[in-house]
């Protein structure tokens, strides 16, 4: 682990709609193995990534049951990242933009993420060694 390094990542895309979701989570995973603090600012649709109510489903085209399909949910992937952070000793600070949460009704999240604002993003940026802003289109 690179001692003392801080990385901030800003993401915007809602889950299940863009290739950037998995890329962003891969970056965060890699960062938790290198940096001491990883701050994620989830803006706009990205706040839906941590929604507790996400559920896996069956796949009628493939003929699989829910159990067989083992459909990923982003909330589980992110829970995995929090577990990784505990394992590596890094801090994962996942901040969902509060106003974005409100308008999307995305307030019920898994354990770990917190509600925040652009101010929190800026405070994290000020302390960061690196910042990655992943845009949406």
């Amino acid at each position: 682990m690179t001692i003392g390094k801080n990385l901030t990542v800003a993401i915007m895309d809602p889950p299940y709609e863009s290739a950037t979701t998995a890329t962003a989570l891969r970056i965060i995973d890699a960062a938790l193995r290198q940096a001491q603090v990883v701050t994620v600012f989830a803006y706009e649709g990205a706040v839906s990534m941590t929604m507790k109510a996400q559920q896996p489903h069956a796949n009628p085209v493939k003929g699989t049951t829910v159990e067989q399909e083992e459909h990923p949910t982003t909330k589980d992937w992110i829970a995995g990242l929090f577990a990784l952070a505990r394992q590596t000793g890094a801090k994962l600070d996942w901040i969902n933009c509060g106003l974005c949460v409100d308008e999307r009704g995305a307030g019920e999240t898994i354990d770990g993420p917190r509600r925040g604002s652009p101010k929190d993003f800026f405070e994290a940026v000020k302390l960061s060694d690196g910042v990655i802003v992943i845009p949406t289109h």
Partner: peptide, 19 residues
């Protein structure tokens, strides 16, 4: 639906916080 451009808004918020 946002009644704003969310990126102009975000940057104005950052400015309000001293950025």
């Amino acid at each position: 639906e946002e009644q704003d451009d969310t990126i102009l808004w975000l940057n104005h918020a950052l400015r309000n916080n001293g950025a």
